[in-house]
Every structure is written in structure tokens, then in C-alpha cells.
Computed example of a mutant assay.
Amino acid sequence: MKRILLTLFSIIPLLGLAQNEDESPVLEELTLTVVNAQTDFPLESVHVINLTQVKGTITDQKGEFTIEAAVNDTLYLSYLGFKAQKVRVTNDMFKIKDTKIALTELAYALEEVIVTPYQLTGYLEIDVKNLPVNNAYQYSISGLNASYEAGSKSPSAVTKVLGAILNPADLLRNLFGKKPRQMRKLRQMKEDDEIKNLLASKFDREVLTELLQLEKVDIEDILNNCNYSKSFINTANDLQILDAISSCYEEYKVLNRN
């Protein structure tokens, strides 16, 4: 009997520790100011994302922003013409008012863009032949409520689509299976308007790689194996890429259950 009591008393503290570890961190409103590191002037419309909680906001005219956060959360700040920065939330940020985060301005030059106008003749049959052709064909599979892009309108392209969906050993299982926690953030990202607005204006995949903890090459592999065309992968904005990955992940979950 004594042995049983001793065992119970030794287990109870461990259970308490386990419960504390499982408890969600306490979220508080954090207010900070973002400034130009060179001039110390406040920066307006800086996008701020709490990568840990998947919440977003932007700075106001005074460079200030307020966001829900907990100690040790990671904030990601992004602003056109400035180097993106990640900041770890500390206790001092909640205690000390007027805490500033400085962003460093980038030295960049606009590359020359050559726009080639279409040479139209006014004759429909001739002009149609001169217009560029989009080779990103789409195929839909009944029951999946989604369409897939393929690079060639040929029987082999259709076979490639079906193979990627039906093959249990497909690379998608490896990519999604290794990142289940990051993939669960997809739904949260799509529910936050500030994050969606930011992604709709970006084409560099930097925010996506930070939020999903994926490399750019992983994102390309996912979309390639979901049969999205190279033209889509290269030209889509980050929000469109997010939607594509999300659709592909939902289909992966269906396959995984089966």
C-alpha cells in the first residue's frame, strides 16, 4: 500500500508539469513602433505578422501597431524598399513603452523593362495567330472539386495529372507528411484579412516561406507535383500560391485518409 501511495505522489507532480506544457501561452496586446533605421522617422503601412500565432496587422501614420502576442513569439516585419526583419517578443516589450523596431533601407535599382506591343493588322485571322498562346491547360477530376494545370495538352499530360493524384507513393506525401504543423497554418492564414492583403501584393514567396517554414524549392516541388504549370508558379502572387498549396493539401488529406 505504501508503495502504491509513493508511486501516486511521484506521478502527480509530473502530471502537473505536463499540463503546464500543454497550456496555451497567454496572449496580450503588444504595441510597438517601427522606424527608419537611417532617419528614425516612423514608417506607415509596414506589414507585421505574428508567425507563431498567424495574425497580421499594419502600422499607422505614427509607425505604431498593436498585435496579440506572447513571450517568445516571432514577429515578421515587411516593407517595400526595406530589409525584412524577424523579431523575438520579450517581456521587456510588454513592460517598456515606446519600444522601437528599426528597419534598414535597401539600396536597389529598377531594372529596365522592355514592353513589346502586339503588332495588330486589323484582320482577325492574322492577329489571332500572332497573339501569344498560354500553354497552361487545366484538367478537372470528378469528385475533387478542383482543376489541375498541366504544361502540355496531350494524353501524357492527362496521365501525369491522374498519376500525381492516384499514386500513393507520390512526392506530395513526403512533403506534406514532414510538415503537418506548418500545413495546419494554411487555414489560419486564409482567415486573416491582413495576411491575405499582404500576400496579394507580393510575388517573392518570402512571407510564405516564413509562415510555412518551407524553402522556396519546397513550394515549387509541391506545386509541380500538384500539376500546376511553370507559368502559374512563376507569375502568380503569393495569395494565389497559398490557395494552390491549400487546395493541394486538402486533397493530400483525403488521400492520406484512404
Rank of each mutant, 00 (worst) to 15 (best):
N234H: 05
M189N: 02
D204P: 05
V207M: 06
M189P: 02
F203A: 04
A200H: 02
I195W: 01
K196Y: 11
D204H: 11
E215L: 04
L214Q: 05
Q188P: 00
S229D: 14
D192T: 04
K230I: 13
N224P: 01
E215W: 01
K190F: 11
V217A: 15
E191H: 07
V217I: 15
L211W: 05
L214A: 10
V217W: 09
L214P: 06
L186I: 07
L212V: 06
D221H: 12
A236G: 08
E220L: 11
N237T: 10
T209H: 00
F232H: 08
L198P: 00
E191L: 08
E206F: 06
D218W: 03
T235N: 08
A200Q: 04
K196E: 15
S231L: 15
K230V: 13
I195N: 03
L198E: 04
E191R: 01
L211Q: 08
S229W: 05
K185A: 12
K190A: 15
N227P: 04
N197L: 02
L223E: 08
I233R: 10
K216V: 13
L208N: 04
S229F: 06
K230A: 14
T235M: 06
E206C: 03
C226I: 10
L199I: 01
K230L: 13
I219F: 08
R205W: 14
L214H: 03
N197K: 05
N237W: 15
D193F: 10
I233V: 09
I222S: 13
V207A: 13
D204E: 10
A236D: 11
N225F: 07
A200C: 02
E194M: 07
Y228F: 15
T235S: 10
E210P: 01
K230E: 15
D192H: 03
C226K: 01
A200G: 01
S201A: 14
A236Y: 14
A200I: 02
N197R: 03
Q213P: 02
L211D: 02
D221M: 13
E206G: 03
N237V: 13
L212R: 04
I195M: 05
I195T: 01
D192C: 01
A236K: 00
K196P: 08
L211E: 01
T209P: 03
D218M: 02
L208T: 06
S229A: 09
N234K: 07
N227M: 15
L214F: 11
K202P: 02
I233A: 02
L199K: 06
L199N: 07
S231A: 13
S231H: 14
D221C: 06
